[in-house]
Design a binder for these strands. Structure first.
Length: 359
DNA sequence: AAAGCGTGGGA
DNA sequence: TTCCCAAGCTT
């Protein structure tokens, strides 16, 4: 792991934020790219938020990037540019919780402190045969084990044991170095420790997406309208095509010829072929316009929300009203915007369809 | 306390 | 396809 080839507290901090709820293999290329662009706290603090989010694009949980960015400015202003070397200072930074403070404190600064993540929780729950240990209990237990001469190594070893041997399902107790000490193994309860957390219910949503395009008078190339998402909530600060919840979805009775009626069956067959259907024959006054074309549906699963995006390509002649809050961007400009994965897919199909149509 | 917050990979 | 999950934090 590249972040183990350095003693730079900033680099170790960045790696720990990236590793929150994220696999090591996923984080590695992002870490490399991040450290190239933002090699120091100062470089990160100086950067614009759009560029910070762009480097995080695709990694998910974007508040991590925004918090890291804010924290870099806190470190510059309140800590003379040095990452705090004590638990209290680390914990005060946005995005740094109990685990991350313990990890950075022990790995970067040699503090004798525990770092309890999901792996450690599972390992300790089994070693001690505790069904659902509290955070306090875990930190007290591990805290007593951490050796003063190698706290970082010890914490990482415990996590790695959980990640490679003491697996959530079917742990390989045969090769476990501490199987003789494991109370769950002795009791045969290792498969039931710790008890799984209840999963949140997943909401489902269908969104009609407007991909507005235009050709600027006297300038080459097409422009697309995108808007920035609000500063809080899902995908905060990321850019997207304007969209709204599809009216009438899931409702059996549709009282009038509406968007919902027109956008059900035809959209599915179109998406299945992966092509673009011409829907220019729809009656005037439908609100979409004569030059509207469907783009393939995009289904995307967030942690707690499954969304089906139904993008429609629609030409807005010069002077036509833009969707609220949206701005025009050339393809080159779009490439610099931080876009959620589902929106990247829509951009791709939109530009392909336009390139074919404008030839 | 529990829910909100992304994404990709593997079973 | 669907579900589960992966080095958590914030509100």
């Amino acid at each position: 792991m590249p972040w183990r080839e350095t003693r730079d507290p900033y680099a170790i901090w960045v790696s720990e934020i990236m590793l929150q709820q994220t696999r090591v293999e996923t984080a590695i290329p992002y870490f490399q790219s991040w450290m190239e662009r933002f090699p120091t706290v100062e470089a990160l603090a100086d950067a614009a938020e759009d560029e910070v989010l762009k480097r995080w694009e695709g990694l998910g949980y974007y508040s991590r990037a925004r918090n890291l960015h804010r924290a870099a400015r806190v470190v510059r202003e309140r800590h003379s540019g040095n990452v705090p070397d004590d638990l209290e200072g680390l914990r005060s930074l946005p995005g740094v919780g109990p685990y991350t403070a313990g990890a950075v404190g022990s790995i970067a600064f040699g503090l004798r402190t525990p770092a309890v993540d999901g792996n450690v929780r599972r390992v300790v729950a089994r070693l001690m045969d505790i069904p659902d240990p509290t955070t306090r209990e875990l930190e007290r237990t591990v805290g007593a084990w951490v050796p003063a001469d190698a706290p970082g190594d010890f914490n990482q070893a415990l996590m790695e044991l959980g990640a490679t041997v003491c697996l959530p399902r079917t742990p390989t107790c045969q090769v476990c170095p501490v199987t003789a000490l494991c109370r769950a193994r002795k009791a045969g309860t290792q498969d039931e420790r710790p008890t799984p957390r209840r999963r949140a219910t997943v909401r489902r949503e269908v969104r009609n997406v407007t991909v507005a395009w235009r050709l600027e008078a006297g300038e080459p190339g097409v422009r697309l309208a995108l808007r920035r998402r609000p500063d809080a909530g899902l995908l905060a600060g990321m850019w997207e095509f304007p969209s709204q919840i599809a009216p009438g979805i899931g409702v059996t009775e549709v009282t009038e010829a509406s968007e919902a009626t027109e956008s059900t069956a035809p959209a599915k067959s179109t998406a299945a072929r992966g092509g673009v259907a011409d829907i220019g024959s729809r009656p005037p006054g439908s609100g979409v316009g004569e030059r509207a074309r469907r783009l393939p549906e995009v289904r995307h699963a967030f942690s707690h929300l499954h969304v089906t995006y139904r993008p429609v390509l629609v030409q807005r002649p010069g002077g036509a009203a833009l969707p609220a809050g949206a701005e025009w961007f050339t393809p080159t400009q779009i490439r610099a915007l931080p876009l959620p994965v589902a929106q990247q897919s829509i951009v791709k199909s939109a530009l392909e369809a336009l390139e074919a149509a404008l030839d």
